[in-house]
Design a protein around this nucleic acid. Structure first.
Length: 750
DNA sequence: AGCACGCCGACT
DNA sequence: GTCGGCGTGCTC
């Protein structure tokens, strides 16, 4: 007897292969099974996607047989497959590409034998551990200590674990009640996604913890997924979740998932989530594809953060997929949930009643898409306006730099305020979103500038190691002694980055002569991607700031995100003006969010009154600052949404970008021109607008020329229809010199 | 995407 | 004479 199954493998949509390949199999394999299959000269991992129709006689000849099935791993469930399939369709990629990219890389390389060996080893280790502690599997209550030593707090007794829980504020209690309050009549559809609109410091994390606790105690199979935008933020979150839940569910119950982990760690976390052993998965955007059969809650922290949008391969939005995943999971649960009758028929067997999955998006400055969804009533809004402990929000000081002397970098009032912080033993945080010393070097005698040889961008001057570095392709060169063009010695930095800002601020303050209240010398430090490149140096520098070794911290936006610095009472944005009149319509939204987050760094300690956020600007009358000053996100959102309605921009329209990379700009443009011409004959063409192709803002990166064009529609469905048909036409379009092309659906930067 | 095959320039 | 460049074509 022979069976035919459709298998997806990691081939991109351009490969010319269909979505799935048909293989012959001795047994009928269920959808979701992991298999190893031959493809050309290679042997690779595939996923059974379904039963296939028997191929005709001719096709049967070239149909190969499945090599093996990794039967140690349970098949990936229907919801997981549906999420992958949706993502592939929506973002215009191949199913196999999305599916296989969602698995841990090590799984892709291993065969069944290796995997079995590995699992046996782990089972053995676990058994040993249990024998030692005398703890049965799933005995709960007591932590198992944890083999990796991930938690020193592993074996807290009950009384102490209770002290892990801080008392919830009234608004937290109210918000949680609202979140779970939406009662679900038996035939109801999925619960609405919720937006937790909470000021910085209002204790959003505590809400996540309590919602997680509530979901986990409902059933022994329940699982929770918590996503954060950056790897940097996972350790502190992991610490809090482990502290809270390891005493209840064991140290293995919390696992992390992000690209900074070793392949072995990633595989381990993935398996733990897949088997249900892990109850909580914490991770970055990649975690949205974690296999979690018991998923009942997804939290997307800082949901507005652009990091949730993948910028390589399938350009999906993990936040949007999280919302979709919760919906599909709920629908599945409602479908399979036994009606009261059938439950009676089974005579009360312990068949698990599938639970719906909720999703909570958290932010102090939500994306306008999410905010708009709340206004329309599609999402439920949960408000937490007050900070925990009633710490006051920072007062905004807008400094009109038009009034400052021509060459002045810092307003005298700002310098005085920083100075005052030092004498009071408080900290200041100055941020400028540009690393390096100066963005470009220029010759004083001729036209020479420090252009990158491979990109249409300048090389940035880094004084610290006297290099010129391209931030786009990574090229690094020594700074020339003289102008390479004319030999002039006088080549000078133009503009400033964090390095120079630190230097000039130190000078302007006379930092060498400044003393803290205890008589020790004041210290200025810098923190950006350059100073935190080495492993562990971020933690080291954060520790220094926490311990009070640093009085003034200069840095890029990384210092504005997430980290709690207790003694900071002043935050200053050096020059955020470029975002005010940017051609990118999302720039104001990002700026507002960034400044709000930065302001949130100040005044976390209620005992230190008078927290201030300073902004130096040439445009003090810009409405963005008025809204910021009033801490009025709703007002800002209203104004932005009004502008977007007028201009017909998202969320009132739907966009996709098509990007081309080629040897020459002409070839890139030629492809887009051909694409434009081909579009006229494509389905739903009448419902979309195609804009002319343009070179990208940085036209050439690493000697590759780039161009893009925008496609827009009033209807998401029409855009989807158009893109998928257009795509198959474009696959057949050959242009000399074209390297690759891709579609970016719902692009964030244009 | 990988990986083959295939056809042209500088090296042991 | 071969090593290696990347153009073209194929993978159930």
């Amino acid at each position: 007897v022979e069976f035919w199954v459709d298998v997806v493998v990691a081939t991109p949509v351009h490969s010319g292969l269909g979505q799935a390949l048909t293989y012959r199999s001795e047994q009928l394999l269920a959808a979701g099974c992991l298999v190893r299959v031959p493809l050309g000269q290679r042997e690779l991992l595939g996923i059974v996607w379904g039963e296939a129709a028997a191929p005709d006689a001719a096709a049967q000849l070239k149909t190969k047989a499945i090599i093996s099935c990794l039967d140690g791993i349970a098949p990936l469930d229907a919801v997981w497959r549906a999420v992958v399939e949706f993502a592939a369709r929506y973002y215009q990629r191949a199913i196999g590409e999305v599916a296989l990219a969602a698995l841990p890389p090590q799984l892709r390389e291993m065969d069944g034998v290796q995997l079995a060996r590995r699992q046996k080893l782990q089972a053995l280790r676990k058994a040993k551990l249990q024998a030692k502690t005398g703890d049965g599997p799933g005995a709960g209550r007591q932590a198992t200590g944890g083999e990796g030593g991930a938690t020193a707090s592993g074996a807290l007794p009950d009384a102490q674990s209770a002290t892990n829980t801080v008392a919830a504020s009234a608004q937290q209690v109210s918000v949680i009640a609202q979140f779970f309050g939406e009662s679900l009549p038996p035939s109801s559809s999925a619960p609405k996604p919720a937006l937790l609109f909470g000021a910085t410091g209002s204790g959003k994390t505590e809400v996540y913890l309590r919602c997680t606790a509530r979901v986990l105690e409902q059933s022994a199979q329940a699982q929770v997924l918590v996503m954060v935008p950056e790897i940097n933020l996972t350790p502190q979150l992991e610490a809090r979740f482990t502290q809270r839940f390891a005493p209840l569910y064991g140290a293995d119950a919390v696992v992390a998932m992000h690209s900074g982990m070793t392949p072995a760690q990633r595989l381990k976390s993935w398996l733990a989530a897949h088997t249900g052993q892990a109850r909580i998965v914490l991770g970055t955007r990649m975690a949205v594809f974690a296999s979690m059969p018991g998923l009942q809650l997804i939290v997307v922290d800082e949901e507005h953060d652009p990091s949730y949008k993948s910028q390589d391969g399938a350009r999906h939005s993990a936040r949007d997929l999280a919302v979709l995943r919760a919906k599909l999971q709920s629908e599945q649960a409602l479908q399979v949930a036994p009606s009261p009758d059938t439950a009676k028929d089974r005579g009360g067997t312990n068949a698990t009643v599938a639970q719906p999955c909720r999703v909570m998006l958290g932010s102090a400055t939500p994306s306008l898409e999410t905010w708009h969804a709340c206004e329309q009533g599609r999402y439920q809004r949960l408000d937490m306006p007050q900070r925990v402990g009633d710490g006051a929000l920072a007062a905004l000081r807008i400094v009109d730099m038009r009034l400052a002397p021509k060459k002045a970098l810092f307003a005298a009032t700002l310098l005085a305020a920083i100075h005052e912080r030092i004498t009071r033993g408080e900290q200041s945080l100055i941020f400028l979103n540009r690393r390096g010393y100066a963005p470009v070097l220029a010759c004083g005698a001729c036209e020479w500038k420090s252009n990158c040889p491979h990109c249409s961008a300048y090389c940035v001057f880094h004084k610290i190691d006297r290099t010129l570095r391209c931030h786009h392709c990574g090229t690094t060169d020594r700074v020339p002694r003289a102008c390479p063009e004319c030999g002039n010695i006088d080549i000078a930095p133009v503009g400033r980055g964090t390095e120079k800002l630190e230097e000039q601020l130190a000078q302007a303050l006379g930092i060498d002569t400044l003393l803290r209240p205890d008589g020790s010398p004041a210290v200025i430090a810098r923190m950006d991607a350059d100073t935190t490149r080495l492993k562990g140096s971020l933690e080291q520098q954060l520790a220094k700031v926490h311990s009070g070794d640093v009085d003034i911290l200069v840095g890029t936006q990384m210092i504005a995100k997430g980290h709690d610095f207790r003694r900071i009472t002043l935050v200053a944005a050096f020059n955020p003006d470029s975002a005010l009149y940017s051609s990118d319509f999302r720039a104001p939204e990002r700026l507002f969010s960034l400044l709000m987050q930065a302001a949130g760094r100040a005044g976390r300690d209620a005992a230190l009154a008078g927290a201030q956020m300073w902004v130096q600007t040439m445009h003090p009358d810009h409405p963005l600052f008025a809204a910021l000053k009033a801490h009025d996100y709703p007002g800002f959102a209203r104004q932005q949404l009004a502008e977007r309605t007028q201009a017909g921009l998202p969320p009132f329209s739907y966009q996709a970008l098509i990007r081309a990379e080629a040897r020459s700009q002409e070839a890139a443009q030629a492809f887009l021109l051909a694409a434009t011409e081909a579009a006229a004959g494509v389905a739903a063409f009448e419902h979309v607008t195609l804009y002319p192709s343009v070179p990208m803002a940085i036209q050439r990166v690493a000697n590759v020329e780039r161009a893009q064009m925008l496609v827009e529609s009033q209807s998401r469905a029409a855009l989807q229809k158009f893109l998928s048909h257009w795509q198959s036409v474009l696959r057949a379009t050959k242009v000399q010199g074209l390297i690759r092309w891709a579609m970016d659906v719902d692009p964030l930067t244009i």
